[in-house]
Design a protein around this nucleic acid. Structure first.
Lengths: 205, 205
DNA sequence: TGAATGACAGATTTCAATATCTGTCATTCA
DNA sequence: TGAATGACAGATATTGAAATCTGTCATTCA
């Protein structure tokens, strides 16, 4: 396993693997070093601390997991449908991880618990994406004239119930789909222009 | 301390006290019995198990804590203002407990974690109160014609961010008040009648 | 006679001794 | 010379034996 130069990337990959196999409570820096065939001291040449290493792993995971969202936010779908799709996708991503790979989900949840910084950035990115969709909707006349950033925060908060990991225990219950749809309907109604529903570019369901 | 007959009420009061003093992890049935000056076997004559006792304590606590909400839900304030006030009060109650008596809040949080049944009922009551306000608003014409029960659930879900104990760690942050106001505004906008902004008291159709 | 007791078994928790881990750094290696 | 090592100190986690707790029930008490 030591057939190549030791890089942060290789360490990251090994850390991810170790973390996946042992879980966040058991994975040690020594384990990671062992997987790479080096001494644990070498790992500290590339990462200042175990926390830094875990943060980097978490960051990469979030990055990969959220890629589909960036695509949707940047798409040209009409803003109401785009927002709906974006929110549904965010929910689906989290839900699939939580229900499909529970232990992995728990692992990353544990990482996240001690990485406020990383989570803060992550949430900020998501908010920006929502804000961009809202802004597009305001510009197109599909939405009322709202403050895009503040409204984005409200939308993010309002949907916490369906994406905040601490509420994952509810995601498998019956009626979740209907509840989510109902909530999104209410939010979109709240964004709709107040008076005449006239100037939309693309009629939506 | 054994100057009276042993009743479930006295046990409950003692249990509450012990729980408050020792915390949920340390409080034992023996402690409760000791506080009452009886043997712990006697406690089991009135409560089938420690879990049942804890459930009863939790139930009483929730009951007392949520009393103001019942009053608001039953008031004659115009439905939009009533809903706003109800939501603000729910938030305030939780927030005050969480920030003002953190350890007690944690204690009850721990109780709640193992009392799905009790929590389920509690949530159901809250939902019913929201539904009654929404129904009143629909009847008065202040709200769109929505399904009161489903919408109540959506409103409850949408505001989880501000009342679900698992998110208490956010409640002290700056900007929380604004974020809450923004969210409630959005929800009320979503409930407003589509055409004219309803102000009428009770015209009905 | 019905409420209260307390000894008991099995489950759970505590605690301190032991082992492991993190992060550093003087030294080695190529 | 710069990357890698591994011994080390202090912090953290593990472990298993001892203590405590839950829930039961035959017996006592009033």
């Amino acid at each position: 396993m030591n057939d190549s130069v030791l890089t942060p990337e290789r360490i990251l990959a090994a850390a991810e693997d170790v973390l996946r196999r042992y879980g966040p409570g058991k994975a040690t820096v020594v384990d990671v070093a062992q997987a790479l065939g080096v001494s644990h001291g070498s790992v500290y040449r590339h990462f200042a601390s175990k926390a830094a290493l875990r943060d980097a792993v978490l960051r990469g995971w979030l990055e990969r997991m959220m890629a589909p969202l960036r695509a949707i936010a940047a798409s040209r779908t009409a803003p109401p449908a785009r927002l709906r799709q974006w929110l549904a996708t965010l929910r689906a991503i989290k839900r699939d991880k939580a229900l499909g790979e529970p232990e992995l989900f728990t692992t990353y949840g544990a990482l996240a618990a001690n990485a406020r910084e990383v989570i803060g950035e992550h949430v900020e990115h998501l908010r920006e994406q929502i804000a961009s969709i809202v802004a597009a909707g305001v510009a197109s006349g599909d939405f009322r004239k709202v403050d895009a950033r503040a409204t984005a925060l409200a939308i993010f908060d309002a949907t916490s119930r369906f994406h905040y990991p601490g509420m994952a225990h509810l995601w498998g219950m019956p009626g979740e789909d209907a509840a989510f749809a109902q909530l999104v309907d209410l939010l979109l109604a709240g964004l709709a222009p107040t008076s005449a529903p006239g100037k939309r570019r693309k009629p939506v369901a």
